[in-house]
Design a protein around this nucleic acid. Structure first.
Length: 490
RNA sequence: CGGGGCGUAGCUUAGCCCGGUAGAGCGCCUGCUUCGGGAGCAGGAGGUCGGAGGUUCAAAUCCUCUCGCCCCGACCA
């Protein structure tokens, strides 16, 4: 059944392709509870590398990790009017504990603003206590109607940064700083280009003054909101009496920010880089960067090549050319009873960036036969100096993957004047990002969504805007107040 | 919650219309031969046919109810 072994192609059914890829590459599996999933070692390994890179960046920008409880008093959610409106419908609520009905129901956190700012209030008296720069790695629960592996599940893993500042400007700087941390991570590690910018009021976080977002384009030309950073203003500070005495001795409310990215990014990675053979993992996030597949015929050769492969792994993993702590991550596939070809397909499905085939011929030449996962190009590489050459090749793969994703996004982005009919046709067809004007009226945004399912993903930051600003609103034709990226989204 | 599809071995499924011994492929176990792009042969293990009730001499198959999952829409990181 050769066909059984092939994935549904992206062109045939993008959605089926995605699900099959996630399941078959063992990134995740469905759990017994509808809408939630198990993240398997292959997927969790990617998440762990994401966590590590981001956590380092959070620490570098002065943040500390902490942990707040899973259960939040229901009354807390209700203290901020917009927040409760936005989140109440999707909250899971605990009504019983210890066999008794609780006096006050407890909400399983859908996000932690309320409990965190409650605690911040307790810890803050003076302007000298500010800023507070905290982050937590946690799970949250949102009772979504319609779920999808990694992209939207009842429970997901994320980080949520929460900060408190003495002034609006400082909070705004923090909001933008963390947006850029996200962008650096998504482009530099995930090799996934994003467009940063401001959300419209209709799309902003429930309770925020302003929401900034990183938007990426998936291979079906739909947008994925990959990370958000919110300037919460004083909304939560007022609701939770987060006050401090300023330098003049006057009481003032603090200014908050919150920002988060989730395991959704793993889904984004799949839909950005996956191909019809499976996953392609950018080297920086690959738990295994290089897999060595020894090839043998006789028992004698098996012993010889196993030894050679292990020796090669030793050479690669002890090399410190990338720094003492950043070693090459190498796996040797010694499984017997599985032919080399079968191993190749499996490692390709799993997205390992680089494969070294090591057979008798290679050993004789003191070389390995190397295959890139991203382009599937193959070349012989000499054993001599291999660690440095491999590291350089991995870096090239990382860069090439980003360049390819960026080129694809640009090829599917439309700028310049466009009629509403042409826009509608585009959204019905190939889709893509359309850079066009917006009059600022929520009614136009709603009409576009009604007509085409497309929304304003973001009002892009300056570097992403068109050379000539759009003059008129995509929808109503009135003078444009802001350029917007219009697209269908996940 | 609307529309569609599906529950049979670990996975993919045939059988159901037209009731009568539960089959196949993959995977798994054992052995031998293989091994540079998804191995071959031989032997073997593995099943409350989603659940409950009903019709019948007899139900995977027909009827009723029920549970669950996936996909497509309305809501969302």
């Amino acid at each position: 059944m050769a066909d059984d072994k092939k994935l549904t192609t992206r062109a045939d059914d993008f959605s089926a392709w995605y699900n099959e890829l996630v399941l078959r590459s063992e990134l995740a599996d469905y759990s017994p509870v509808k809408g939630s999933m198990v993240i398997r070692p292959n997927g969790y390994g990617i998440w762990e590398r994401m966590q590590r890179a981001l956590d380092d960046m959070f620490k570098e920008t002065g943040h500390q990790n902490a942990y707040f409880p899973l259960l939040i008093p229901e009354s807390f959610l209700k203290k901020e009017a917009q927040h409760v409106e936005g989140f109440a419908p999707e909250c899971a609520v605990v009504t019983h504990g210890g066999g008794k009905e609780l006096e006050e129901p407890l909400v399983i956190r859908p996000t932690s603003e309320t409990i965190i700012y409650h605690m911040f209030a307790k810890w803050t008296q003076s302007y000298r206590d500010l800023p507070i720069l905290m982050n937590q790695w946690a799970n949250v629960v949102r009772w979504e109607m319609r779920t999808r592996l990694f992209l939207r599940t009842l429970e997901f893993l994320w980080q949520e940064g929460h900060t408190a500042h003495a002034t609006h400007d400082e909070a705004e700087q923090e909001t933008v700083r963390m947006l850029h941390v996200y962008r650096t991570f998504m482009e530099g590690w995930m090799a996934m280009p994003v467009i940063t910018g401001l959300k419209s009021d209709g799309e902003k976080f429930a309770g925020a003054l302003r929401t900034y977002s990183c938007e990426a384009m998936m291979q079906d030309n739909k947008a994925l909101q990959a990370g958000t950073s919110h300037n919460l203003g004083q909304n939560f500070a007022k609701a939770f009496e987060l006050q401090f005495q300023d330098e003049k001795g006057e009481m003032a409310f603090a200014w908050n920010t919150s920002w988060g990215v989730s395991t959704r990014m793993v889904g984004g990675l799949v839909m950005t880089h996956g191909d019809d053979n499976g996953l392609r993992t950018p080297p920086k996030l690959a738990p295994i960067e290089i897999v060595i597949v020894p090839i043998w015929k006789s028992d004698e050769q098996q012993a010889q090549l196993t030894a050679a492969a292990l020796k090669l792994k030793e050479e690669l993993t002890t090399w410190t050319g990338r720094g003492a702590t950043d070693r090459l991550r190498v796996h040797v596939d010694l499984r017997d009873g599985m032919k080399p070809g079968a191993k190749y397909y499996e490692w390709e499905l799993r997205g390992i960036p680089l494969r070294f085939e090591l057979g008798p011929k290679d050993l004789e030449k003191q070389a390995v036969f190397a295959a890139r996962r991203d382009t599937r190009e193959k070349q012989s590489m000499a054993m001599d100096g291999l660690p440095a050459a491999a590291a350089a090749l991995l870096e090239r793969i990382q860069n090439d993957m980003f360049a390819a994703a960026l080129a694809r996004r640009e090829a599917n982005s439309v700028r310049g004047p466009i009629t509403y009919d042409a826009f509608k046709a585009l959204m019905e067809g190939n889709g893509g990002f359309v850079f066009a004007g917006w009059c600022g009226d929520a009614a136009c945004e709603a009409k576009v969504k009604e007509d085409t399912k497309a929304t304003i993903r973001v009002m892009p930051d300056a570097e992403f805007r068109s050379p000539v600003a759009p003059a008129t609103c995509l929808c109503c034709g009135a003078p444009s107040k802001a350029e917007a990226v219009w697209a269908r989204a996940y």
